[in-house]
Amino acid sequence: MRTIYTLTFLGFSTVMAGLLTSCDSAKPEERTAVKAAPASLPDSAQVILASTEQASVAVTAPIINLSADAAAILAKPQVPILCYHQVRDWRDSDSKQARDYIVPTAVFRDQMQMLADSGYHTILPDQLMAYLTTGAPLPEKPVMITFDDTNLDQYTNALPELEKHNFKAVYFIMTVSLNRPRYMTREQVKELSDKGHAIGSHTWDHHNVKKYEGNDWITQVAKPKKVLEEITGKPVTYFAYPFGLWNKEAIPELKNNGMTAAFQLAAKRDEQDPLFTIRRIIASGYWSPIRLYKNLEGSF
């Protein structure tokens, strides 16, 4: 029996009144879902490059304008983007803080059911990029679901729940963990990509971007991007900052290494490069479906 959530939907055109404080500093019960900006260029996209060159590959692919005005991007209502880490049952050894990042399997199942029952539609980064840079339409009540860190339970526990509702997600992969115990294999990442999910980079070993120097950009960004492209057979141009931390110095480095957009958590967006400071909200393990619903509805 489908549960009907009756809170009022405020409408996609309503602009969020205030900005979120940092996810890391806010208590789970105090957090409000954030409308965020999107990420990057798939292999099938038709893209309007900043140099005005056009790379036209597929007629039906979204058009993305990388020279879009930053102020115009910032003025658009943001789309809520959820960030998940582990999807598994809590253990006695899990601290209270850790449980904020660990969503029990049944809670995740109920959250996904709530999204489906409430009419939400998952979107992928190229759709969001097209919306932000050209004003392309999105489905009613869009939401993006993202996963960080390559945890195996994202494949074993979360994926079946996504597939029940034909939801698609974005997986930000930390390449050092591939094929290790409790993490996904290369074959599983390839399968996710083949099923239509988006694959992005989450660095080699989760090193803080604000501390990079010298060859760190090669180790943490260039090489992982190449590895993921070899696995999926597709360009990888979406990036998620470890810990959600970024600085202005990182943006040109990411651009130089082939990234076209990057995801943070809930800090203020950069006024010159909003596509490299896309905002997300951590989906707390303490949130009931109705709590998640209120946060999503309140973000529009």
Score class of each variant (00 low, 15 high):
134 T>K: 11
36 A>W: 00
27 K>W: 10
158 A>P: 07
122 T>H: 05
180 R>W: 02
212 Y>W: 12
127 Q>D: 06
47 V>G: 05
232 T>S: 10
136 A>T: 06
241 Y>M: 05
110 D>T: 01
254 L>M: 02
46 Q>A: 13
17 A>C: 02
203 T>Q: 00
290 I>P: 00
293 Y>M: 06
242 P>E: 01
203 T>W: 03
182 R>V: 07
224 P>H: 04
53 E>L: 12
89 D>V: 13
38 P>A: 12
4 I>S: 09
218 I>Q: 12
127 Q>E: 07
267 A>M: 10
241 Y>P: 03
181 P>Y: 11
78 Q>A: 13
204 W>L: 03
46 Q>M: 13
22 S>W: 08
76 K>L: 05
144 M>T: 01
289 P>E: 04
191 E>K: 15
280 R>G: 04
74 L>W: 01
81 I>Q: 13
145 I>N: 13
228 L>F: 03
28 P>K: 12
16 M>E: 07
119 G>P: 12
55 A>W: 09
247 N>P: 00
231 I>P: 08
256 N>E: 14
125 P>N: 12
263 F>V: 13
161 E>N: 07
270 D>N: 15
42 P>T: 06
161 E>C: 14
249 E>T: 04
83 C>A: 15
295 N>E: 13
57 V>P: 00
184 M>K: 09
87 V>H: 04
16 M>V: 09
216 D>T: 01
289 P>M: 05
5 Y>P: 14
115 L>I: 02
29 E>M: 04
170 V>N: 04
136 A>F: 03
226 K>G: 00
217 W>R: 00
234 K>D: 03
123 I>D: 03
20 L>R: 11
5 Y>I: 05
201 S>H: 01
7 L>D: 15
100 D>C: 10
156 T>D: 11
181 P>F: 11
200 G>E: 02
5 Y>R: 13
191 E>R: 05
11 G>M: 03
99 R>A: 08
297 E>N: 11
